[in-house]
Amino acid sequence: MRLDIDHVAKLAKLPLSKEEKELLEPQLNQIVNFIEKLNEVDTESVEPTFQVTGKTNELREDVVAEGLTQDQAIKNAPNADDGYIVTKGVFVDG
C-alpha cells in the first residue's frame, strides 16, 4: 500500500465513507501503478513543459471594471444572510 487513503482524503478535504474507501483503495493503487510506467522514460536532460503555446504571465491594466453585483455574487450560496455568505466557524465549532 503506497497511497495512504486517510491521509490523502484529509489533504483533499474529501469526506469518504467506509464503503467508498474499500472500493477506491484498490482502484487508486492500480492507477498509481499505471502512471508509474513513466519511470521507464529517461528525462535526465529534459525540461518540463507547463504552457504549450509559450505564453507567459499576462497582466491587465489596473482599471476599475464592472463585476457581479452583490446579489448576483451570493445568489447561489446555500446559506446567505443580509448580503453575506454564512459559513461554519473556523476557530470555533459552529
Binding site: 489533504l11 467508498e20 487508486l28 492507477i31 522514460v41 528525462t43 529534459v46 525540461e47 518540463p48
Partner: peptide, 30 residues
C-alpha cells in the same frame, strides 16, 4: 471525480511532486 481528486492530491503532495507531476511534464516535452 473522487478518484481524480485523490490521485491528484497524492501526486502533488509533499515529497511526491517531483516524482509524478514534474516527471510527467518532462515526458510531455518529449
Amino acid at each position: 471525480a473522487k478518484r481524480r481528486i485523490m490521485i491528484g492530491t497524492y501526486c502533488l503532495s509533499s515529497g511526491y511532486y517531483d516524482a509524478y507531476y514534474l516527471k510527467a511534464q518532462k515526458v510531455r516535452t518529449l
